[in-house]
């Protein structure tokens, strides 16, 4: 009971933090950034996908698209609730960004974020029709699955629990996209490969760069475990195999 231990060494040994009051400033900043990135990406992703619902070729597809929009919004809400415990005004937060705003299709922003929010760069590009939306959802859905497996182990317990609950839901979204892409192929629809070529490098960029100093400090805080490049390789291998099964190629 009387042993003393610094918070840094506790975290470095795999300890977890459990509420806003025992979170130190630097950790808090990184945690807020992680949460806003997730929330903004989900809200922007859902808002962009909402426009595509009506482009679904059949009622099943439209139901699947609507379900994805609903669940991504709900997943954003789960994390926003945790941010609210840090004092964030969640109502204002959910409404004061233009989530549907997109750049030009040929804008080239690399991995940089926009001026208004923390969404991953990939969510700044517009979807072009149903096939394009299905492809984007498949590639990004698989990326999110890989990223959530990493973030479900973050040292902030309430967030780790939220991500553990969210992970199977997001995984299902990429399965729906996979089913949708198979259907499109059966119907003889073309254009999937062009969309893959467009989205592949943009989704790949969402894994971030191989910056080591920052990764090390996040690792010490228990907010990261696996380097960006390892996660990206895993995604590329898994997703490449899925595409190959459908007679398509990685971008």
């Amino acid at each position: 009971m009387t042993q003393e231990m610094s918070l840094d060494s506790y975290l470095a040994q795999g300890g977890v933090l459990t509420n806003p009051m025992n979170v130190p400033p630097r950790y808090r900043a990184e945690l807020m950034k992680l949460m806003t990135t997730f929330v903004d990406s989900e809200l922007a992703g859902a808002a962009g996908f909402a426009d595509v619902i009506n482009a679904g070729p059949g009622i099943k597809e439209r139901i699947a698209a609507a379900k994805i929009v609903l669940e991504k919004t709900d997943n954003a809400n789960r994390v926003l609730k945790i941010m609210a415990e840090f004092g964030v005004d969640s109502d204002r937060y959910a409404n004061h960004h233009p989530w549907t705003a997109r750049l030009e299709r040929n804008a080239d922003i690399g991995a940089s974020r926009g001026d208004h929010d923390m969404r991953l760069a990939v969510f700044n590009y517009p979807l072009e029709g149903w096939t394009d939306a299905v492809v984007m959802n498949l590639l990004m859905g698989r990326a999110v699955t890989v990223q959530l497996a990493e973030f479900a182990m973050v040292s902030y317990q309430p967030l780790a629990e939220a991500f553990r609950a969210i992970a199977p839901i997001e995984a299902r979204h990429s399965e729906l996209a996979e089913e949708g892409l198979v259907k499109l192929a059966e119907a003889g629809t073309t254009g999937a490969q062009a969309s893959i070529n467009y989205w592949w490098p943009r989704v790949a960029a969402s894994f971030g760069s191989a910056e080591s100093a920052r990764f090390d400090s996040l690792k010490k805080m228990g907010l990261r475990r696996t380097p960006n490049m390892d996660l990206k390789s895993r995604w590329a291998a898994e997703t490449g195999a899925v595409l190959e099964n459908m007679g398509l190629k990685a971008g």
Binding site: P25, A29, M32, K33, F86, V88
Partner: peptide
């Protein structure tokens, strides 16, 4: 005005 920590850490 939106704020949370007033300590320069949360960016709210």
């Amino acid at each position: 005005a939106p704020y949370a920590c007033k300590a320069g850490v949360c960016s709210t």
